[in-house]
């Protein structure tokens, strides 16, 4: 099979396909977020976030995205949503808060959009 036949470069608007390319790009960021499964790691991060970024070797783009708690920027820097969810958890952000931030609406508006989807 020719590589061109593979469909992994399909363009789905508003969607980043987390493939090997993104996995390489985001490895340090995702590894840091994976560490947050442990409560002691979350405490260590909160004591000194900058030191924790360096411990995992985050690059400048990843650090800036984390400082801003900007989920779209974290995804662009190679973040995978399943690991980023653990970063969001430290700041008590729900998946609706995260969805609202990414789509530029309030959390209440985002929740309403989900309820509206049930009425169709």
């Amino acid at each position: 099979m020719e590589l061109a036949e593979f469909d992994h470069h399909a363009d789905i608007p508003g969607t980043t396909i987390f493939d090997g390319r993104m996995a390489m790009k985001g490895y340090a960021l995702n590894k840091m977020c994976y560490s947050f499964n442990a409560a002691e790691a979350r405490a260590e991060y909160l004591r000194d976030p900058e030191a924790y970024f360096d411990k995992f070797g985050l690059n400048d783009e990843q650090k800036a995205a984390c400082r801003a708690k900007n989920v779209l920027a974290m995804i662009a820097a190679g973040g995978n949503i399943y690991y980023l969810a653990k970063f969001a958890g430290i700041y008590k952000l729900s998946v609706q808060d995260v969805g609202a931030q990414q789509t530029g609406v309030t959390t209440e508006e985002f929740k309403q959009k989900l309820l509206d989807a049930g009425k169709k």
Binding site: P13, G14, T15, L84, G99, T103, K113, A117
Partner: peptide, 13 residues
């Protein structure tokens, strides 16, 4: 469901 990106909140009954 979709959690990530500008398409977050997508549902397809």
């Amino acid at each position: 469901h979709q959690l990530d990106g500008e398409r977050a909140g997508f549902i397809n009954r």
